[in-house]
């Protein structure tokens, strides 16, 4: 019991690790701020393409989505960070993370937006067009708001997934929170810094996870 406390919940070590871990947390947030909007925009565009009338566009969008849903994000990230330099394309860890996550997140967000778009009844567009709105106006003012609302829990839960995914950046030595905690762990041979990082993730994400569960139940009933 005491061993568990000193090895996992060692306050002294946590206090020492805190500045570095918090600095890492800042970078985690920075990654989120860059990567989430990128994924949302990429996903929305891919979703629109995947329901378009143009056959070629539609199928390339679906192929893009399925391809990047099939490749594990870590594989993608390492490929970009460690593989591309052999082709003369060296990227900073941050750029590699941004590109890798953009491709991965877009695919997942696209699938969600697509379901949302398909959930909006065709009559909605027709009604909007009948009042003189253009196709684009109907999309922006009538279809998209409904589509987004219909899949809001899924969008939120994917945002949680993206935030969790930022921990992968530690593998390419981007000094986000997990990387910082792992560094202190390797210096102290004590797992408490990792527990500290876990607690911070938990404080950040637990309320969202709870909220999503509530949301989903309300929609189900």
């Amino acid at each position: 019991m005491e061993a568990i406390v000193t090895q996992f919940f060692n306050i002294e070590i946590m206090v020492k690790a805190l500045p570095l871990v918090l600095q890492g947390f800042g970078i985690t947030l920075l990654i989120c701020v860059v990567v989430i909007p990128l994924g949302l925009v990429g996903g929305l565009l891919a979703a629109l393409a995947s329901v378009s009338q143009n056959r070629a566009l539609r199928w390339s969008a679906i192929a893009f989505v399925d391809l990047f849903r099939a490749v594990p994000p870590l594989v993608l990230l390492i490929f970009i960070y460690a593989g591309l330099p052999f082709a003369g394309l060296s990227l900073s860890p941050f750029a590699a993370v941004a590109i890798g996550f953009f491709l991965n997140n877009s695919a997942y967000f696209a699938e969600i937006f697509r379901a949302g778009l398909l959930s909006v009844h065709k009559g909605q567009t027709e009604a909007a067009r009948s009042t003189g709105l253009t196709q684009t106006q109907a999309l922006i003012h009538v279809v998209l708001p409904q589509a987004t609302r219909n899949v809001l829990p899924d969008l939120m839960s994917n945002v949680v997934e993206v935030i969790k995914l930022t921990s992968l950046a530690s593998v390419v030595s981007l000094g986000e929170m997990l990387h910082a905690a792992g560094l202190v762990r390797s210096l102290t041979y004590n797992a408490s810094p990792l527990v500290l990082a876990a607690v911070i993730y938990l404080v950040m994400l637990w309320p969202v996870v709870r909220l999503i569960s509530r949301f989903e139940r309300r929609i189900a009933s």
């Binding site: 949680v160 969790k164 930022t166 593998v171 993730y201």
Partner: peptide, 8 residues
């Protein structure tokens, strides 16, 4: 569901 698997 809230913790990144890599952390665990």
């Amino acid at each position: 569901r809230a913790l990144p698997p890599l952390v665990l």
